[in-house]
Design a protein around this nucleic acid. Structure first.
Lengths: 337, 337
DNA sequence: CTGAAAGCGCTTACAG
DNA sequence: CTGAAAGCGCTTACAG
């Protein structure tokens, strides 16, 4: 590895000039520029990033926190973040938290120590007070954009869909095609999306004059696992006056519900309508293809990272954006006769 | 942010002593240690990583290159790498290459510029000469461990399963339960695993005295996509004397084949045996549950990262390790009568 | 056991 | 337009 000094010597100029050429900063004559460029090429010079960062006091690094990476839902989001980061000249560091708050905390310390400039977080639960207060104090706003999930403290920016409206529409659709006994499979996690989807479900029932009953609301594990979706659905289907339709807060759960229905001899689609959330790839792998709420995943990643970078570079304030969702009608829902 | 100098002043000692306490290097009296620790706590001091790295000339950062992140196969591997890296005190930077060689190349430059110490690569194709020669010259070995896929240059270490043996066993199983016309769905990519699985398939046929026919070998797209698996299977199933079993080099392709079979009126499992590769989650989501070859994914990630770290820290030489695979019998294969 | 000082590779006022 | 020099925050021989 050669240094800026080697280049300067090779080109017969000062390190200051070399630096100016590399960064396109300050005035340099064409002649000097040419000599420097040639020397860089000849020596195959790569600026040492640590020296630069130490000097500039910036890391050009973004943190990305995802709760788990097995749910295919997160894959496209990470992809979107990565693309935006690259475009802005940032690298990303990924942390798969697996609901381990300590791991999350340790990782976020990289912000304090200057190892990263900002973070996109998909791991924030509804009430996440301690984390930030401990890390940044009560006053200063951390350089963080929340994606998909967000906590209810008012100041932090986020990018998400309108989960309440989306869930309400989804359940309204089920009602519109004749369903009256509609079950709900949620999750025991503390994500705001889970709560809002539950509220949307209840809201739609209430608005239609249908009864909201805890009998029809069951909960899968934190990670929306397939197997736990199956179990939840079986519970629901074993009840007196079982539901004719189930709204699930994730596709993986919905897929589990479909499998559960089959196992107890119900034909999914005809005998039981199932509506999911996310539109992951496996939603269209098998019949009945899943009716679901689609989120603009890649887009959410892009927008989150872009927002974060603007905050970092232009000092833009916190904003909260809702992206469009879409209800995609396929085969897993049918009219109730 | 306060610096080591602030801590030194607060504790009434020199920066050298503070540094020694932080790093547990060199001799320090209990008294000094106590004073320094107290000062660190009081000031909530975090060492600046850039200064340290500039000085030590190490980055404590590992690169991870995956071809795509939509295939659930890669998720656990990344998880394993992350865990090992954390244990060794390394951070990881993720690059989703999407088969973009330039992106890969740019990313690997981080090694040269000292931004990362080593890389775990899952993106190397059979003949990957240019990449490394351009980057590291013909002589020096790059600090890279290959995972799952590897190139045929002899020197680079890798962690993988024995793809040839695994594929051979899988197809031998199909033969053992009475299948004679066995199709193959591969991929047009240039990964060694794809090639070895093809060879294993052919080897098993030949060993059993069955004919190897190009008619029975079809190829899906580079990313083992579900839809392209469907198309490939339809091609196979449309042929004269269609196969009674299909060996697929990935589960997602196998899932596509199962769907294709259904669409042309064949009952997968009974009417057509399908055998996959990877044992991803969706292999057990729907009936027929997929018979498949399971790879120790998380383990592969762990072992790769551990090996890389040993190379970096102890100067261990290149080694090549094969991990155990396993054939998991489920419902998608049945005896041919 | 401790501290003064050099130096890692870079950028950027400052003076010319 | 150019260069000498200071300084970013750290670690580590070196001398004591």
């Amino acid at each position: 590895m050669c240094t800026i000094l080697d280049v300067a010597r090779e080109a017969g100029v000062s390190v200051a000039s070399v630096s100016r050429v590399i960064n396109g900063s300050g005035p340099v004559s064409v002649k000097t520029t040419a000599k420097v460029k040639q020397a860089i090429k000849k020596l195959n010079y790569q600026p040492n990033i640590w020296g630069r960062r130490l000097r500039r006091k910036e890391s050009r690094m973004l943190l990305v926190l995802v709760p788990n990476i097995h749910n295919p839902f997160y894959a496209s989001i990470v992809s979107g973040i990565e693309d935006s980061a690259k475009l802005g000249g940032y690298g990303i560091m990924l942390c798969i938290t697996n609901r381990n708050k300590d791991k999350e905390y340790e990782f976020l310390k990289l912000l304090k120590s200057g190892q990263a400039d900002g973070a996109v977080m998909m791991t924030l639960e509804k009430q996440e007070k301690r984390l930030f207060r401990d890390l940044f104090g009560a006053t200063s706003l951390p350089p963080v954009v929340q994606c998909c999930e967000y906590c209810d403290s008012k100041e932090l920016p986020f990018v998400a869909i309108d989960n309440l409206a989306a869930a309400k529409q989804a359940v309204e659709y089920l009602i519109s095609i004749g369903h009256r006994r509609i079950g709900f499979i949620g999750s025991v996690n503390r994500f705001i999306s889970s709560e809002l989807r539950l509220q949307g479900y209840r809201g739609a029932l209430t608005a239609a004059g249908l009864e909201v009953s805890p009998e029809y609301e069951v909960y899968a594990d934190e990670d929306y696992g397939f197997r736990s979706g199956m179990l939840a659905a079986k519970e629901l289907l074993g009840r007196q006056g079982r539901p004719s339709a189930i709204f699930c807060i994730s596709d993986v759960l919905a897929l589990g519900a479909i499998r559960a229905a089959r196992e107890v001899g119900i034909v999914p689609g005809r005998g039981l309508s199932v509506l999911g959330f996310d539109d992951v790839e496996s939603a269209t792998m098998f019949h009945p293809l899943l009716t679901t709420v689609s989120q603009p995943r890649y887009e959410m990643g892009r927008v989150s990272a872009d927002m974060l970078i603007r905050m970092l570079e232009n000092g833009d304030g916190a904003s909260r954006v809702y992206l469009e969702h879409q209800i995609i009608l396929r085969e897993s829902t049918a009219a109730n006769r």
